[in-house]
Design a protein around this nucleic acid. Structure first.
Lengths: 237, 237, 237, 237
DNA sequence: TATGAATGAGAATTCATTCAT
DNA sequence: GATGAATGAATTCTCATTCAT
């Protein structure tokens, strides 16, 4: 066992980020630091990220980071909140119940999928938070402000569908959101292990395109299907 | 910003584990260390786990850990492989195609769900690996030996269902496995953030029971449904 | 600076030594351990040698080493004494004053040179001891028993030479020994740095052959020359 | 065998060095650390030197050492290069071919001898490097830049001597340098073991003075002597 | 605002040595 | 005699954080 292998071989270096130089613009400094920090926390986790590296890569001194964010934890929380805000933002724009509940639901799913495929950072942070039993998220008010409207939107879609006779009644929006986010997110956030274990490149565009189609079909199928399958029961025991 | 805040506040201490003392039993020592290491890696991640703590809690000296495992990385990989082995093991036992493809598929889903609900360790390790771009998993042969039989099993169920006219044709087992594992795993591995953001205890037995039922319905619904919904298309753009 | 480079890159592994297996022969065990230890101390120095490696390579357990030698220091001293004994031994055999003082002196020089060229171990140990201010050597009685005869031999050669009118009078055997061992040993013990700094392979047979010839000429020249050059004085100051 | 004996009894502590405190002067910090490190490497060898001790004695934290030098190896190399530079520097000054080749050669020898007698550090480092097969020296460009001028100087002296009819022809400067450095350096670098084994204080001023005179006589004698002794041959075999 | 200097408290790893069998 | 198990005490190296300027 040589010592050579010791170093942080655990993760690839986060991609370099633009590095502007010493300026008097505090807002720019904070934004730059935050962007670099985001890249590092997302790829290395909280414990794995290095303040030193974030400073070096951002072009600001460590002292600046401490000046603006106080400590590593605060910096992480700032990243977490920033990513959360940008994540749910897009979906807000598109709630169009007038295209009909089926298309609206489909859009809901496709939007979410497209969003994380374009930038999976949120998924990494969610993974970190869950490893961490949501310790930081719990302390933040940001996500709490973001989710209720989403659930309301989903509820409106479901209600409209039931009223129009295309969706079955009795579907809990929270329960549906969990199921729906599962199919949307899991394939993306687990693309590395799935690729290795299944021997297929599950991160490819083609695979994920098909996965999204299947996800849409499953979700819409579940909502529209008359409960033909009946109350499915486990076979074990 | 006081220095007191420096400490590792990010995660709760892993639960204490039994601590035997100075046996002369190498196998026991290794197993004990591995067990404690598992708890620490699972709850703290690779970078967050502390060899010191694993040693103290296992009742063995750090030197024993290095004697048996060489370094932290190897110890982590040993945990990863051990957890993987125990994870997929149960499902191997139960493939009974004679209960019919629908019930077999249902059982497949319920087994998987039950397995990770009983012990979510594998999900944490998968999350760590994905943050890490599967760096360690990629180097291990264990998972590669485990998944092909699973896919074969799934393929047999699908084929039987198609032949018996209950499943639609053309479903790719890999694609189905990804969708299926999504609904099974995501709710469990994201139970902390989902609980916080949705304001519902999504980790409760009741919630997860309902989630599993919904998952089963979605998966089986997708496989059995004639593609009535047609080729769903995105509404945006 | 990656950690990979940290490891003991400082010296090449000592050449493997024969490894007999678990026997009841205490003498063989001790000799085997001593041989392996010699190789390690010679190439790694005292601080650099590893008891673990000596044990592994010798085929005996570390406990055996401690059983026979007590500790690392004792083992080192045992090596030091053993090497010393074998080093001066050969010269004892050959002192033949009847070939004449010039040839006897030449033989003395050539013998010494040949001896260290065949096995430079003694030179490494001397270097280690000198770094160490002869801490261990000082405590040993072995070298003290070995040198007086050598000096006596040298004195006899000088005396004979003076008596026969071929050597100048007044040469101190100790002083001569120091000069003589300088030309004999230095080139060999410093062959690595000399090669690097001078850009010539000073460790080659050809180079060392020429060096020995020059050494002989210098020593004999010094002893035989009438002090023609006069009392040489420094030019500076 | 008590545990008390475990400690580093091998060498005397290096002499304490001045300890300035928490300046904000990086150059001073580096120089101070380098000076202390020099003392430690020189007296304890590479493996024997302790970063902890160097830090404590320099008055700076270990972190500063790692900040400035990266690791122990780099620090050692920095010491090695620094010592090398200061070693050969003096001789550069004195090349005076106009005092005549004999006196110039004598000066060359006396200069070198005086230099290492005043500060034998270079000899210890050379010894360490040779134990080490010049692993670090080989990687450095410093010594390579320093020796060629020395050899040129020597060659000029020899050429002038030949031209003036005082030196014999055909002497290789490299070969002469090796012989010359042997008589100059060996007595100093081996003063501890020589003193112990020969029962004379070979480190005393008086002894070394006489040794230098003898060295000068040997070297000049060799160069000026007509090869009267003829091609000396070994008597053995 | 801005930063390079500086470090205390760890954190991984090593190693000579002991001990139960 | 012989050994594998076991470890305390280092030892190298790291990192979040503070401070003087």
């Amino acid at each position: 066992m040589t010592a050579d292998q010791r170093k942080r071989s655990i993760a690839a270096k986060p991609p370099a980020v633009q590095r502007p130089r010493k300026t008097r613009d505090a807002a720019l400094a904070q934004a730059t630091i935050l962007g670099v920090a985001r890249a590092h926390f997302v790829s290395q986790g909280f414990a794995g990220a290095r303040v030193d590296e974030i400073a070096a890569e951002s072009g600001y001194s460590k002292a600046m980071i401490y000046h603006y964010y106080g400590n590593k934890e605060n910096l992480y929380v700032a990243v977490l909140e920033e990513v959360y805000k940008h994540f749910v933002a897009p979906r807000r724009v598109l709630n169009l119940a007038e295209v009909g509940p089926v298309r609206a639901l489909e859009a809901f799913v496709r939007e979410g999928a497209a969003s994380v495929r374009k930038d999976p950072a949120i998924l990494n942070l969610l993974a970190i938070e869950n490893l961490n039993e949501a310790a930081y998220l719990r302390g933040s008010t940001v996500p709490r402000a973001i989710y209720p409207p989403l659930l309301t939107q989903l509820k409106e879609i479901l209600d409209a569908g039931v009223q129009q006779g295309v969706f079955r009644a009795g579907i809990d929006p929270v329960q549906l959101y969990v199921a729906l986010s599962s199919v949307i997110f899991h394939a993306v956030s687990n693309r590395f292990t799935l690729s290795v274990t299944l021997g297929t490149d599950t991160a490819s565009s083609a695979f994920l395109d098909r996965h999204v189609d299947m996800s849409v079909a499953m979700v819409i199928g579940y909502c529209t299907t008359s409960p033909r399958t009946g109350p499915v029961r486990t076979v074990r025991k």
